[in-house]
Amino acid sequence: MRESGCKGCSASVRLKQSEVDRILADYLRENPAPLVSDVTYADRLRVCRDCSQLQYGTTCSHCGCLVQVMAKLRDKHCPAPQAPAW
């Protein structure tokens, strides 16, 4: 497939930290939601970093989400089937 302008063919799944930061900021601006504390956020990300389902250092293969975004949100949970890690 090729979209006009070919975003798909040029977009990389490997994101720079600046891109992750931008996506997180955009998400929080457009979807205001309760957040976790910095300590919980760090704990969650530590779990994600050790998970075999983390792809490209950013992406959970179970849901396609950037863990840096989802771990920030109080009401989100690890989507691992039957055994969520947080």
């Binding site: 979209e3 798909g8 977009a11 990389s12 799944v13 994101l15 996506i23 997180l24 955009d26 998400y27 457009e30 979807n31 490209y56 950013t58 992406t59 849901c63 396609g64 989400c65 950037l66 975004v69 989802m70």
Partner: peptide
């Protein structure tokens, strides 16, 4: 063809 869901990997076209 929309924008991907907020907070998801842009390369996954979800």
């Amino acid at each position: 063809w929309h924008h991907v869901e907020p907070g998801t990997n842009p390369g996954f076209l979800y």
